[in-house]
Design a protein around this nucleic acid. Structure first.
Lengths: 189, 189
DNA sequence: GCATTTGCCTAAGGGGTATAGGCAAATGCA
DNA sequence: TGCATTTGCCTATACCCCTTAGGCAAATGC
């Protein structure tokens, strides 16, 4: 019988594509086996479990998103950098909703530490170098930016803003304006 | 045989409690049946499906959260109101993580329209009456506040801010300060 | 007190997860 | 090139969750 050439990496990539098509929650070992025209049990030599598969997809998405962020940030500073990173998150979520959802998977501390999660925090910190913030305000601002990016994108993706004017792209760019103004004029405690 | 006295409402309440204990994703018709010491099939006279049960829990949580918001907002305005509503969301998520997760369930448009979702948007709009914003900036601001509240709370709950100083309560109150400053000084387009 | 309704039950089928053990294809080495 | 070993995918099996159909007994209504 001809072998399918399964690999942990191929399974994770295919899982990411499947997530974008049907949603991350619907990514299942069985569905993936069907996609490769292979029996379910065959996948268990390559991934430890369904959870392991999903974790793999999450790490993949986190890294891919961090790569896009780094690329967008190169050569930019200040508001320009802020808008660029903001758009990376929003565009990624639009193009790859399943992967974006995967990136939100709760990871156990050890896995999280080894993930690209730290790169994301570093990118936000890099943007803040264009503004005049010192600790602990810088950390507060990192958390605020993370919250806005994640919150907005997930509400928009979840349909929370649908069917209402003005359009969400307009709001997004005004929010970036507002964040820029806030960072330039961060209130004293 | 003694009847258990099942009711749609009792099932949804118990489902909400179960969600807080084991996580919303682990709320299952089977688990609920075990909790009532009843056979699984018995629940299907009260809820249409597993999805219907989860939707019920989501609507319950959305309404409960809106009630808390209304109560907190009564008699407050300006930054005081802003901080009060912000804390309602954060405290609810801390006390009832499963219900908070349930409130994030994506609802179909008809169900969403009949939910307490609209009350949430109205509460945020009410806060903005204490600031000097006109449309469309008011809508942009509503979306920003929603994004920050939801984003911060879900990142904090997901462990995104863990193991790092300063503590998250401190950041939260500084973020409320920052939002207040931003709303008082919203940038022109 | 009896008929009707209601509530929970048993039975059964379908899909996902996971493990054990088997056979054949690929690989490595003389 | 031929044989032994390793590797990859398979069948079989068991368990859990979801869902529907149909049955019997408790509660309700007249």
């Amino acid at each position: 019988m001809v072998r399918a050439g399964l690999t942990r990496e191929r399974l994770i990539r295919a899982g990411a594509e499947l997530a974008d098509e049907v949603g991350f929650a619907e990514v299942t070992v069985s569905a993936l086996a069907r996609r490769f025209e292979v029996k379910v049990a065959s996948l268990y030599s390559h991934v430890k479990s369904s959870h392991d598969l999903k974790t793999g997809i999450a790490l993949f998405a986190l890294a891919e998103l961090a790569d896009r962020g780094s690329a967008a940030l190169a050569g930019r500073a200040g508001k320009d950098a802020l808008a660029a990173l903001a758009n990376v998150y929003r565009d990624y979520a639009t193009e790859h909703p399943g992967r974006y959802a995967a990136a939100q998977l709760r990871l156990d501390p050890a896995t999280a530490a080894a993930s690209a999660g730290g790169r994301h925090a570093q990118m936000t910190r890099a943007i803040l170098r264009g503004y005049d913030l010192t600790e602990p305000d810088q950390t507060h601002a990192v958390r605020l930016l993370g919250s806005v990016f994640h919150g907005y994108v997930s509400l928009e993706l979840g349909g929370g803003f649908s069917h209402s004017a003005p359009d969400t792209g307009e709001t997004w760019s005004r929010i970036v304006d507002a964040l820029d103004a806030l960072l330039r004029n961060w209130p004293a405690p």
